[in-house]
Computed example of a mutant assay.
Amino acid sequence: MRFGMLAAALLGLAGMQAQAQQAQGQAQLKTEDEKTVYALGLSIGRSIKVFDLSPAEIEIVKKGMTDSLTNAKPAVELDTYGPKLQGLAKARGEKAGQKYLDEAAKEKGAVKLPSGVIYKELKAGTGQSPKATDTVKVNYRGTLTSGVEFDSSYKRGQPAEFPLNGVIPCWTEGVQKMKVGGKAQLVCPAKQAYGEQGSPPTIPPNSTLVFEVELLSIGSDTPRAQPQQPGK
């Protein structure tokens, strides 16, 4: 998995640079290049969160980067262990996602649906509930389990409208439990969201997703509304 190797390498470089800056005093981002490089570090960190690295493992990543930069003899062969990155990312992602789902299911008011989706009503609605074949208008916010926001109709300043059977299964199932005027949280297992493929660049593979959804109305205001996948 090339992106994994690159991200790990750059993370190590960022860590080495941070250590060097700390040795000289607290890092100050003065130039546009420095700020941009810092943004690169933020982006890389988010892109490899799926590995759920421990502090000790981050140090191992830094060691690998140091050995590469100094032409030291590597502790392992990259040709042997590089191809294992994808499997590790998948296993770590699934484990972290399941842990998040288990914790979400324990929250007061949370309901585990047949598919594994965790539904939690945040505000009771007073209108009708939609069917899978209905078109709905919603406001929503989507985040990774890390809290990183990847999509928001609120930020776009415009509600989303789509046929309920034209979006990810988590939404098709969960939104049907809502009533117009209500608001709910949906915690979506990867299999009920974007699965092993994810939705690059914002949603990594095997991601458990968290949505806050506000059901505004049922029925299309515009003829022939096109399906819109949350997160796209």
Rank of each mutant, 00 (worst) to 15 (best):
P130G: 01
S54R: 13
T66Y: 12
T202W: 11
L215E: 10
N71I: 07
M178T: 15
Q185V: 00
I48K: 01
K179D: 10
P189L: 02
K123P: 02
S54W: 09
I168M: 12
E196K: 15
Y194A: 00
L85P: 08
G219K: 14
Q19A: 04
V50C: 12
A91L: 14
D134N: 11
A7Q: 05
R156F: 10
V175H: 10
Q22I: 06
A23L: 08
R224G: 05
R224M: 09
Q21T: 07
G109W: 13
G97E: 08
V50Q: 06
T31S: 07
E59V: 13
Q21L: 11
V210P: 13
Y140H: 04
V180R: 11
K232A: 10
S54Y: 02
E196G: 08
I58C: 01
K99W: 00
G4S: 12
S153C: 11
K62M: 15
V37I: 06
E173G: 06
G45M: 13
P201H: 00
K179F: 13
V117E: 12
L78N: 03
K108D: 11
A18F: 12
A104Y: 13
P159Y: 02
A20F: 15
C188L: 05
Q21C: 09
L215V: 15
R92P: 01
G45P: 04
L216T: 02
K177I: 07
G142S: 04
A110T: 06
Y38A: 07
L85D: 07
G93H: 15
G166Y: 12
E59R: 15
P189H: 01
A72Q: 13
L78M: 03
V213H: 07
I58N: 02
E214W: 07
K112F: 00
I60A: 08
V76H: 11
G15C: 00
Y154C: 01
Q22E: 08
Q22Y: 15
A132E: 10
A14W: 01
Q197R: 08
F211V: 02
N139W: 11
I218T: 13
G198V: 00
S220C: 05
A27M: 13
L144W: 02
Y119S: 14
K90D: 11
P205S: 05
F3T: 11
T145L: 01
A124I: 03
A110P: 10
K84D: 07
Q26M: 02
Q22M: 13
V136K: 08
T36I: 11
M65G: 09
Y194V: 01
A56W: 01
T31F: 04
C188K: 03
K112N: 07
D134H: 04
R2T: 12
L42N: 10
E214H: 03
E34C: 04
A124R: 05
K131S: 14
A96P: 07
L216K: 03
A75H: 08
G198F: 01
P130N: 00
